[in-house]
Amino acid sequence: MPIKVSPVAGSRFYIGSAPVDVPDVDVTEADFAAVTWIEVGQYETMGNSGDSAQGNTVNLLNRRRTYNWKGSRQAPQRSDNFALNTSDPGQIAMIAAEATDFNYPFKVELNGAPITKSATATITIASPGVVTWTGHNLAANTAVKFSTTGALPTGLTAGTTYYVKTVLDADTFTLSATKGGTAIVTTGSQSGVHTATTVPAGPQRLFMGQVSAAEEGMGGANNAQMLNCTVLPNTNYVRVAALG
């Protein structure tokens, strides 16, 4: 088995543009589909992701031993730190979120996006339109863009990001305008040679929680001014695989 090391460098942190209500069940990727994300710039150090269980003990008289057992699960608080930029929209959003008692959605996009792939593709005029890309090997929700030497069918615009809706077979798939959205219908006419190109995305971690601290850290002469943020997760983490 080959060695695989995933560096933290290249990762990005995002906060949703509006607060959300935390559901009383575990969240899924679909709960974040409508979120408008704001990247928090100048990311310096990343907090930990994932759950842990509350540790509990019971003292067993007959065994003269303390027995450990797992209790409630939680995602412990995380610390994400940014080189201070008072005009950065994401940092402004984190400071504003700290001043409220609301929960916000968060996304951490990790390093590890696949290599961009590109190939000549054909597109049917149909409901829905079907893209043929020989041996595409793409999964549902993979982002793709199109360019052309002529004109794409009505319903598609060159340079716009679309998503693989349904993989029909090894060579064909349909498209949607958003992840999990309605399949796109193509109409009109088309011309020229079309090229499809993936828009790779790295693995993601999605969760909801509250910003409990957004402190400006200073330090000594050789320290950068920092925005040190503490986030209290109030949901599970959703692990989204890399796509591309």
Rank of each mutant, 00 (worst) to 15 (best):
L243Q: 04
T197H: 07
G209W: 00
K70R: 12
D88S: 14
T86Q: 08
G155Y: 09
P153H: 12
A99W: 00
P200E: 05
V211E: 12
F106V: 14
G129S: 11
F82T: 11
T154C: 01
T157C: 09
A158L: 11
T120F: 03
G209S: 07
A242D: 04
T120K: 04
F106G: 14
G209I: 03
V193C: 09
T197Y: 04
L232D: 01
V58S: 13
A201W: 08
T134G: 13
T148N: 08
V5R: 03
L232A: 05
N228L: 15
G135N: 07
T36A: 13
G90K: 10
S191N: 01
L232N: 04
L138M: 04
N234R: 11
P89G: 11
W133G: 02
G192T: 03
A34D: 13
G159A: 09
S189A: 05
K179E: 07
V20W: 00
F173I: 14
T182D: 06
V185T: 14
I123D: 03
T124E: 08
Y67E: 08
S6W: 07
F32Y: 08
N111I: 12
V35H: 08
P153Q: 09
V131W: 06
Q210D: 00
Q210C: 08
K4R: 13
D101A: 15
P200V: 11
A140H: 00
M46L: 13
M208A: 05
Q42A: 15
A242K: 09
D101T: 05
C229R: 06
A242N: 05
N223Y: 01
N228P: 05
L168N: 08
G41S: 07
V185N: 06
R205S: 10
V199C: 07
T116D: 02
G16H: 01
K70L: 09
N48Q: 10
G47H: 02
A113P: 09
C229P: 12
R205W: 00
I125E: 04
T235V: 14
G220F: 01
Y43G: 01
T132L: 12
A201Y: 02
T142I: 06
A75M: 06
N222G: 11
I92T: 09
G155F: 14
V20F: 05
A53Q: 03
P76K: 00
L138G: 08
D171W: 01
P114Q: 03
A177Y: 08
G16L: 05
T149M: 11
A213F: 11
A221D: 02
S49Q: 04
Q77F: 01
E98D: 02
Y67H: 07
V58M: 13
G16S: 05
N68L: 10
T116L: 15
T116H: 01
K179P: 15
G220D: 04
A18D: 02
T235C: 10
V22F: 09
F13R: 06
F146W: 05
R65A: 08
E109T: 07
K165V: 13
T198N: 02
F207Y: 11
R63S: 10
G188M: 10
A96M: 03
A183N: 10
G244F: 08
T195D: 06
D101V: 15
L138Y: 02
G155M: 13
S127F: 06
F13K: 00
N85Q: 10
D88T: 04
Y163H: 11
G192P: 13
K117V: 04
K165A: 15
